[in-house]
């Protein structure tokens, strides 16, 4: 076989091997995350319960994220209103602006954008914190002291993320609607009462309920992925950065995938 063909064959074999390796490592990772989830549920129901640490984490994850989420929500509502107005004005449908923005924010933009911000702030924080605890042997220190580090560190953080994200999303939606009200009034004169009358005229339980339920899953995904990445970190200090980074990347991607599935399920029930 000529040398040129041999080298081409080698290149093909090499790329096939690397794809196989990537596929294998993806499935291995998926299996490990599933096992990690299994352990989470097992430890969640088993006493003793770490209520004090859960409250502390809920404060850190929820309350401390509120200013960022509130600012983002306000800008989201304001910008969406300003950007949508010209298009609606073309069709003479400016009066639909509050309802359209409300449905967009409550059903889709509010939950997804807030969850992504949450993944960025909380996911990276948890990933880096746990990885750093692992590198500096703090997790081992708990283990040798007879304390279950999984229950103390992972269960409390995942529960805090799962329960705090829906609350943050509801708050972000409300602030985004207020931002939208400001946006409407930049080039018009609509009273607060009329704006929210229009909003709640179009918003139904079917808009609010599925959107809120999916944020519980988003919060769980962010919590469990960031904890998994941090708890299983290695490679020393380099691993801390890698864990934080991959917690955000994997968390954000999972949010989009879950959102796609949630939309399909919601549309099935709305038919």
């Amino acid at each position: 076989m000529p040398a040129e063909i041999k080298s081409k064959v080698k290149q093909v074999e090499f790329s096939e091997n690397s794809y196989l390796k990537k596929a294998k490592s993806f499935f291995e990772e998926a299996a490990l995350v599933t096992m990690f989830c299994g352990r989470f549920f097992k430890e969640l129901v088993k006493p003793p319960y770490e209520f004090a640490e859960f409250i502390k984490q809920a404060y850190l994850v929820g309350y401390k994220s509120f200013p960022l989420v509130a600012t983002t929500g306000f800008i989201m509502g304001l910008v969406l209103t300003i950007q949508s107005r010209p298009t609606l004005a073309t069709f003479g449908a400016e009066s639909w602006l509050p309802a359209m923005v409300a449905v967009s924010i409550v059903r889709e933009i509010g939950p997804v954008i807030t969850a992504l911000i949450f993944a960025g702030k909380v996911g990276s924080g948890i990933g880096a914190e746990l990885a750093s605890m692992k590198v500096t042997e703090q997790i081992d220190a708990m283990e040798v002291a007879g304390i279950n580090p999984f229950k103390y560190i992972v269960v409390t953080r995942v529960m805090a993320a799962t329960l705090m994200l829906p609350i943050l999303v509801i708050a972000a939606d409300a602030i985004a609607l207020y931002g939208s009200y400001i946006g409407v009034n930049l080039k018009g004169d609509v009273s607060f009462h009329l704006f929210f009358l229009k909003v709640f005229e179009k918003l139904t339980f079917a808009d609010v309920f599925p959107a809120t339920i999916k944020t519980v899953f988003f919060g769980f995904a962010v919590g469990i992925i960031s904890c998994y990445k941090g708890y299983n970190s290695n490679k020393g200090t380099e691993g801390v950065g890698l864990s934080a980074n991959s917690a955000v990347v994997m968390g954000s991607l999972t949010i989009f995938i879950m959102d796609m599935i949630a939309v399909q399920i919601t549309s099935l029930f709305s038919k």
């Binding site: 750093s132 703090q138 220190a141 002291a145």
Partner: peptide, 16 residues
């Protein structure tokens, strides 16, 4: 058993 055994880590491993 671990509660009856003390362990001093190389890095001290204090909780930050």
């Amino acid at each position: 058993l671990r509660k009856k055994v003390g362990f001093l880590f190389q890095s001290a491993a204090l909780y930050d």
